[in-house]
């Protein structure tokens, strides 16, 4: 079973790396999106410093959600999802592996680039560590929840806007504690509690979301 999981991970990773442009889209989205804010609200350093961490978090949330939207569509259309269901790997593990690889390809770059964005948004030095740390814990949660929405809607006609309606409310807790962690760290009161809750959200979503995703996928395969 481990071998099958690794093979699936290798396949997904290879598919993503063959089209590196696609994997970089969320990063570009986050970069351009962040660049709009100094133009929109004015480049004053104080304004940007105050709203910066929240802006980067919200845009990262959008980037992840838009990125997960078609997580299952291609596999359903060409029939490989059916093959995966027939294989020895339970669909729950397929979902987990797929989400982790997807995070590795689209989520991790967001984490890596976030210190640069923090600089652009005039964040205090503490945020250069706090923001990537919070995103490291938070973006996998966003991927897991986004994957539930994508699996529920795979094969339906109206997709993207409805996925956002389903997924965004469930992602709000991650956003709240993600921004809370950054602001507590930069405010000097220490964000331990927020980081711990983020970690709890991560573990909870890793444990529970695969079951919801697999149930939704079985439905799509009927």
């Amino acid at each position: 079973m481990v071998g099958a999981a690794l093979a699936l991970a290798r396949r997904d990773l290879m598919l993503a790396l063959r089209r590196p442009g696609e994997a970089l889209l969320p990063v570009l989205f986050l970069l351009t999106g962040t660049a709009l804010f100094p133009l929109g609200v004015g480049p004053g350093a104080e304004t940007l410093a105050r709203i910066g961490s929240g802006v980067i978090w919200v845009l990262a949330l959008f980037a992840v959600t838009v990125g997960t939207d078609r997580l299952w569509a291609a596999d359903l259309e060409d029939g490989s999802l059916e093959q995966l269901e027939l294989g020895i790997l339970p669909l729950e593990l397929v979902a987990l592996v797929r989400c982790l690889v997807h995070w590795l390809v689209t989520g991790l770059p967001l984490v890596v680039i976030s210190p640069l964005l923090a600089l652009l948004m005039q964040q205090p030095p503490a945020a250069l560590v706090a923001l990537p740390a919070a995103l490291l814990l938070g973006t996998p949660v966003l991927v897991m929840i986004g994957a539930i929405g994508a699996a529920l809607l795979v094969g339906s006609r109206r997709s993207q806007a409805l996925t956002a309606l389903l997924v965004l409310p469930l992602q709000i807790p991650a956003l709240i504690f993600g921004v809370g962690a950054v602001e507590a760290s930069t405010g000097g009161i220490g964000g331990t509690v927020a980081y711990l809750i983020l970690g709890a959200l991560l573990l909870g979503s890793l444990a529970l979301a695969p079951f919801a995703i697999a149930a939704a996928l079985r439905l799509a395969l009927e």
Partner: peptide
């Protein structure tokens, strides 16, 4: 929003039973 999402998802499929069960999963989540 969860209520609205449930209702929207229920009606999002041509096949009514598919929508009903997708919405049920969302309701559980």
């Amino acid at each position: 929003f969860l209520y609205l999402g449930y209702i929207a998802l229920y009606d999002a499929f041509e096949d009514a039973s598919r929508g009903a069960r997708a919405a049920s999963i969302l309701a559980l989540v």
